[in-house]
Design a protein around this nucleic acid. Structure first.
Lengths: 169, 169
DNA sequence: GCATTTGTTCAAATTTTATTGAACAAACCA
DNA sequence: TGGTTTGTTCAATAAAATTTGAACAAATGC
């Protein structure tokens, strides 16, 4: 079989470096670790799909980091494995999902929805605790506040599909 | 002057504990430290405004934490100082802002907008770097990607006022 | 079977972030 | 003025999150 280039990896050039910085900042806002921003960023600015080993070599990160980062990105639907790849190639290659709709959808599904849902449960419980308060004055206040929390979380839930719709072009 | 109770602080009761947990979780999603969730949470579930010292004693946190937490919350518009307080009282008391509109507005203004704005600048710079690429094929690709980034951030900016409007009832 | 390549897992090390606490400043009063 | 209370700042510490790297597993080909 044709011997492929496994030599010294190409250095990160200046535009790539700036793209990585943008994505590292971006994912930090979303509460994700820098390595994830670097991985997605390099895939985003790469003209061809990259293997785990490409990421390790070019970003100078550990295999562990690359593997875990790719897993998270896959779960978010932000990265997909390229299939086929033609020749009998064992290694899997990754490419970024670049549709904002898809990225936002994945983030909401994986990172926001679960919090909304567990919050809803906790707030429901709070309502029960508030109802059980014996002092009428305190109970009235607690019910007012837990009701307010309930409205917050409901509004939060309502706004998500709207965001998705707007960002889907 | 009338001697006020500066004795042993009241312990956090069970409903308060659960409210604190809800807010600690809540602010974590927003990328804020737990102490901020505790401070806001205790104010939220308190029937009267609390002083910095009340927070220190009831939450068992340091004065430094309470002071910095309150500063952040004030900057977000999530907490306000109660004025007057009648009697010649030197200490300032705090109460929570409980209107979702206000909270969301403050968060967007302080934590989201700055990132959107700085992102816009960095992406503009990326566009310049891409234009300077000499290889035509690579340049075409880079311009396509930086243009996409530009669309993302524009959409992000557009969606914020809509979120605010929806959450303002 | 064995050797090789590719990728995962997870405890340990590192890095980053949050919290503390002591020194300091500011406001007030006697 | 000196003493007291209230609140801030920031270097040191503690806690939490991220990254590493080595052991392991799975897949392939000889």
């Amino acid at each position: 079989m044709q011997e492929l280039d496994h030599g010294t990896p190409q250095e990160i050039d200046s535009i790539e470096r700036e793209v990585l910085a943008v994505f590292v900042d971006g994912v930090r806002v979303l509460g994700l670790p820098p390595s994830i921003g670097e991985i997605y960023g390099l895939l985003f600015i790469s003209q061809t799909p990259l293997s785990l080993d490409d990421l390790v070599q070019r970003l100078k990160i550990s295999k562990g980091s690359a593997s875990q980062g790719l897993r998270t990105l896959k779960s978010l639907g932000a990265v997909r494995e390229t299939d086929g790849n033609g020749n009998g190639e064992r290694r899997t290659y990754y490419e970024p999902a670049v549709e904002l709709k898809r990225l936002v959808g994945g983030f909401i599904r994986e990172q926001i929805r679960p919090h909304i849902d567990s919050g809803r449960h906790k707030i429901k419980r709070l309502g029960d605790l508030a109802s059980a308060e014996t002092d009428p004055d305190r109970r009235k206040f607690l019910l007012e506040r837990t009701d307010r929390l309930d409205h917050w979380i409901r509004n939060g839930g309502r706004v998500l599909p709207i965001i998705q719709r707007i960002l889907g072009q």
